[in-house]
Every structure is written in structure tokens, then in C-alpha cells.
Design a protein around this nucleic acid. Structure first.
Lengths: 242, 242
DNA sequence: ACAATAGTGTCTATGAGACAATATGGT
DNA sequence: ACCATATTGTCTCATAGACACTATTGT
């Protein structure tokens, strides 16, 4: 911070009295629905002076210096408001700031990245799920939110290669084939069954529960995430194809 | 942005008229000097009303909405001012914002992370190198800069396990043993010679130049980074010990 | 019995770790 | 010749990929 910032006291006052950028927080919220990766988007308001009226945008908004203790709390609040989910996987994605990204002036947004289980929470208000097809969203988004979303998708795919992140997209109980399907949906390529099982089981991240999933075929063992739900890092990626 | 943010228009204008956080950019600049990883720090000014007077801090300062086109440009400017280096490896580290990190009020900083070669640039002004010993800095830093630095060290170490990042800490020409030494300094553990060479050479990130480094023993081939200096991601980490 | 999916085993390839062997300069 | 470091090779081990095989349910 502040190498040269001149802070003058109140009498000397007027200190810190230079223009400040607008400060917002936006959240990229992913879930798996209908066997697809989907992202939660809201529609911009149409009011007078609103930028990008009625465009789709990431949920987010201005930091409320009275209400938000810190950035992560602000992101968690926005997530809770839109989805009702209280303790998801939430990590910081990065920040985007420039003179031109918001027509109202120099602005910087702190972007977060959340994974929630398909069965968690209930949508509130104007938020809706939109599928990611072929690693992209069909629609154009307001501001630079398209860029932010692309960055989130890339980060997710990247991390899925070598971490247990998809576990946070799963419902409370799930089978190994379920989990593999989620990995495959995110990576958009098939994975090899036995290598997948070996990796996941030796990572010690899930534990079997006493029930099986039954269907018109051989039942499958149900698992749940182990308590300490930190993501696990594998020492190798899934070897990319080609 | 702005899903629910109530922007009150007085009629229509005067909106956006709520308190905004202070916005700064800080840069964690690493280099290898004296066979150690070092970070560039500045001393805080002592003036009236300055927070953390005379403490050590990361170089940085307020975003200048008149001068800085975007956050990355702001970070590059600050790096240039302190080191004279124009095009280093520069990536975003994350952002830290809260009501209490700066006594002057709610503030958010966008932290960047730079790697520069030992022989690049010349320090200007108040900036000085400080060694990282045992993965930590001895001194306490102003604000939450200790936390930001710790995060940068962790990110660096993490990425060094599976990327070619240390290449950006090297001078224009270097030998493979030089590069290995830098990896070892950052990771603070020895690496195995032949595995290291195989990995680096098969990554196609460096190319031999026509000269050798000569000394009191067998000469070593000099290499340089290949043109497109994107970092390379390996599919495995260096296997951690134990 | 059959279909369908769950789960295991076998074989090969790749690349890391350990460590030995060889190469090439200066002195 | 000898020292010191560079560079290469050999052997073993872990894990991914390919793919076949076995297991267990409902119908």
C-alpha cells in the first residue's frame, strides 16, 4: 500500500481526498444440473442510469463498508442471498479493475468462485442457472463478466485435473461412478474407470457409508466426503489425451 | 457487480454516492540474490497521520484513476518505479480487503507477484532486498503485508513444483546446474540431478546457446529461455520427500 | 438367462528417485 | 594425473492408460 499516499489529518484534512475506484464483489457459482456444468446468473436491473440494463451478469454488487467485514464475507453474503447456501466451497478467483469496464467510472471487482452441490439451497429472486456448453456460455454478459467467467471455467478445469474439487459439487452421498461423471462433465472428456477409482480411493478424501445405491443393475457403494473438507492435491494430473 | 446494490439516484444523479473503500495495489517482487530467495521491501514514510510509520512494507500504493489504465498496468508501473524492470514475470496473487487492515478505513489491495532476474534493473529510492529464510521473512511488515507475503511464498513454492517459473528468476544465459540450484533454493530441498535434467529438457522451454560456462572443472552448456516465455506446466510435481 | 452397470485385475508406458558411470575442463 | 563438476546411463518403483474380466443386481 500507500508508498506515497499523503494522509492529512482532519484539520489538515482533505487527505485521502482523491477519487477512489468503485469496489465490487462478484461470484461465479457453479453447480452440476442435468448432467451439465451450470453457472448462476442474474439479470441487470433496468432503471435509469443502470449500465447494461437487462443483460445477464454474475451475481455481485458493491462492497458495503458498513455491513461487510471483509471481501470473503461480502462474497459469502452474496452467495447466501442468491442461493441460500451457507458454507460452500468458496475461493478467490482474482480481481479485475480498469477505467473502462464500468461506464460509471474506474472500478475494480473482486471475483470469487463457488462450488455448490446440485441439491443444496434454493434459488431466490432473479437468479437462474445457465449451462456451460463446450467450455463456454452462449450468452454475452454485462461488464467484463464474460472474461471473468471464462477465467473461472479455466481455473475449474485446471484444478479438476489434479485436485478433488469436484467433490464439492456432489450431494451428501454419492457413488464413485457419480463422482467420475462429474469429473468428466467438467473436463469434457472421458476418464478411465480403474485409474480414476485408484486415485480417488488412495487420496483418502471420501469414506463409504453403510448404504448402497440400488437400481436396475449392480448396486454401487455410497460414499461421503470426509470431515476435513480441504481439497486434495494429486501429484499428477490426469494425463491429458492427444 | 451490482445485483442488489441499491444505487440511489437523487434524481438520477448523485447515485454512487456511498462510501468507497480505499483501493491500492501491492507487488511482491522476488529475486535470487546471494543464493537466497529475496523479496523487495520499502520503508513506510514517517509523516503525520501515516499508518505504520517506518515499518517495512511491500512496494505499492493507491490506484491512480487518472494515470492507471488498469490494475496490471498499475502494478507494472510500481515495479518499474522501484526496480527499473519493464517486462518481468507478473501475475496476480489475489486481493485482500477488510474494514480493519488499514487504520484509515475500509481498504482493499490488489496484490501482484513478480519474478525478476538477479541481474535485471537497478533499485531506486528506498527499496531494499530482504532474504526469505526457512520460508519466512524475519521482520514484521506493515498492514497485512506479512500475510500477503506468506501467501506469495506459498504460491511460488507450490508452482515451482510443477512449472517452469524459476526460469524467470534466471539471467539471460544460464546452465542447467544453475537452474537446478534456483529450484532447490526456492523449494528448500535438494533435487535429483538426472530427473531434473530430463524434465527440463523435455519441456522444450530452453535452448542451448553457442557458448559454455568455463570454470575450474568441466564446462557447462549455457542455455537461454525460448522466445514465447509462457510458463510450462509439468504433468507431475517433483515428488515431495518422505 | 440377460442386460446393465459396478468393481477388479493385468499389461504396458512414462517418468521420478537412487545412484553409478563416464566426460571434460582447469590445475 | 587429479580434482571438481557436468552429463549420461541403469535399475527400480509408482501410477496412468488400455482393456479385459468378474460381480451383482433387476427383469
Amino acid at each position: 500500500m500507500a508508498g506515497g499516499a499523503r494522509v492529512e489529518a482532519i484539520e489538515n484534512s482533505g487527505h485521502l481526498d482523491f477519487p477512489r475506484p468503485l469496489t465490487t464483489v462478484d461470484v461465479v457459482i457453479f453447480a452440476i444440473l442435468d448432467d451439465r456444468l451450470q453457472v448462476l446468473l442474474v439479470r441487470r436491473p433496468a432503471g435509469e442510469g443502470e449500465p447494461f440494463p437487462l443483460s445477464l451478469a454474475l451475481p455481485g454488487g458493491f462492497v458495503d463498508v458498513a455491513k461487510d467485514r471483509d471481501l470473503a464475507a461480502c462474497a459469502a453474503r452474496k452467495l447466501k442471498e442468491k442461493t441460500g447456501v451457507a458454507s460452500p466451497y468458496l475461493e478467490q478467483l482474482g480481481s479485475w479493475g480498469s477505467a473502462v469496464r464500468d461506464p460509471r467510472g474506474w472500478s475494480a471487482t473482486h471475483a470469487y468462485f463457488a462450488l455448490i452441490p446440485a441439491d443444496a439451497g434454493v434459488l431466490t429472486g432473479d437468479a437462474q442457472w445457465h449451462p456451460i456448453v463446450g467450455g463456454r456460455l452462449k450468452a454475452k454478459l454485462a461488464f467484463d463478466h464474460g472474461e471473468i467467467l471464462a477465467s473461472a471455467i479455466q481455473r475449474l478445469r485446471n484444478k479438476v485435473e489434479y485436485t478433488s474439487l469436484p467433490a464439492f459439487l456432489m450431494p451428501a452421498e454419492f457413488t464413485l461412478p457419480d463422482l467420475q461423471r462429474v469429473y468428466e462433465i467438467v473436463l469434457d472428456r472421458p476418464l478411465e474407470k480403474s485409474a480414476f477409482r485408484t486415485r480417488i480411493l488412495s487420496a483418502d478424501m471420501i469414506e463409504p457409508v453403510a448404504r448402497m445405491r440400488r437400481g436396475p443393475n449392480r448396486p454401487a457403494q455410497l460414499y461421503r466426503l470426509k470431515k476435513n473438507s480441504e481439497p486434495v492435491y494429486f501429484v499428477r494430473t490426469f494425463n491429458p489425451p492427444e
